[in-house]
Design a protein around this nucleic acid. Sequence first.
DNA 1: CAAGTTCTTCTACCTATCGTAGAACATGCA
DNA 2: TGCATGTTCTACGATAGGTAGAAGAACTTG
Lengths: 122, 122
Amino acid sequence: MATLGDLERTVMELLWATPEAMTANELRDAIAEAPLGEVGRELAVTTVLTVLSRLEKKGLVKRERDNRPHRYKSVTSREDHTAELMHEVLVTAPDREAVLARFIGSVSETEAQTLRKLLGGS
Amino acid sequence: MATLGDLERTVMELLWATPEAMTANELRDAIAEAPLGEVGRELAVTTVLTVLSRLEKKGLVKRERDNRPHRYKSVTSREDHTAELMHEVLVTAPDREAVLARFIGSVSETEAQTLRKLLGGS
DNA sequence: CAAGTTCTTCTACCTATCGTAGAACATGCA
DNA sequence: TGCATGTTCTACGATAGGTAGAAGAACTTG
């Protein structure tokens, strides 16, 4: 499973929140100002680049090598990624029905409503 | 999040599969014969004990210290644990509705059926 | 085209986690 | 009281991830 470290997660957060592909420098700045999470950290660009490479190797990020300041963007949307993770977790258990039963019990009423709608009739 | 290593996972598998609490020795033997996963590994009991301690610290395992060969058992059922993990994953995303929508799309028809039943009317 | 600026790649260090287990300590039974 | 059995302490190697410097590639502009 693709478990992410803190910085890796932060970078993905930013990429998911931005429609256009971003350069390493833009990401560094974004992390510095980061209203999200901890204190805005001042990282070296190389640090960001290393993280991006690792994310690329994991298949979470795609890089546009066309123009020089390479631009990076997430391969999947945050929602797809999360849903995929949930599914990965689900299939680790032999008795999925039972897992789903417990899972349903843990979601809010609103979410349950959404699920009913999504599952539609029969 | 509580991500488990391979051995840790194997130990949890065994604990989940066994109703009674087990001793370190019983676990070592079980791992050795392990029809599950890789080749039955011959581990030192201390190895198993170390892993059990770590799992205890993570709150996944409870130890009965009453009698001498301490006995270990999982704190939650495998299903509860898995459902909890799924929920943890779900709440990392801001747009849960969207995540659920994708998630529903990834489950089998049987599972969808189960979900409909579980969500019942209203 | 040459020199500087900018970006990328390589390499490396540090820490935390995990697999693994020996050595030493504790305990209960013969 | 001493052995057998079990537990705790300590430790070492491997991998992942956070962090970044040094060196190399490429673009910019005089």
